[in-house]
Computed example of a mutant assay.
Amino acid sequence: MKYLWTFFWTFLLVQMLTYVVSSMIGIEYNVETGTILAVAVTILILIVPALIPNEPEEKHIH
Rank of each mutant, 00 (worst) to 15 (best):
F11Y: 14
M16R: 04
A40R: 03
V48F: 12
Y29W: 14
V48W: 09
S23G: 12
P53K: 09
Q15E: 11
F7L: 13
L12F: 15
L17Q: 04
S22E: 06
E57P: 00
L51C: 09
A50E: 08
I36D: 02
E58I: 13
M16V: 13
P56G: 04
M24Y: 07
T10P: 03
K2I: 12
P49L: 10
L17I: 05
T33S: 11
F11S: 02
M16C: 12
I47A: 14
L44F: 15
F7E: 00
M24V: 09
E57A: 15
G34M: 03
V31G: 02
H62I: 10
G34H: 04
T33H: 09
W5D: 02
Y29T: 04
F7W: 05
L17K: 00
T33Y: 13
E57N: 12
E28K: 15
M1C: 04
E28N: 15
E58M: 11
P53W: 10
G26T: 01
G26A: 03
F11D: 00
H60T: 09
Y3I: 05
I47M: 15
N54C: 01
K59S: 15
Y29R: 04
T10Y: 02
S23F: 14
I52C: 03
S22A: 06
T6M: 10
I43L: 15
I47V: 15
A40C: 14
W5E: 05
L4H: 02
T10W: 01
A38P: 00
V14H: 00
E58L: 13
G26S: 05
M24L: 13
H62R: 06
V20G: 03
Q15S: 14
T42W: 07
T33V: 15
L51P: 03
N30I: 02
T18G: 07
K2E: 07
W9N: 03
I36W: 13
L44Q: 06
I52G: 01
F11H: 08
L46E: 12
G34T: 03
Y19H: 08
T18M: 08
Y29C: 02
M24K: 03
N30W: 06
V21I: 15
E55S: 10
K59Y: 13
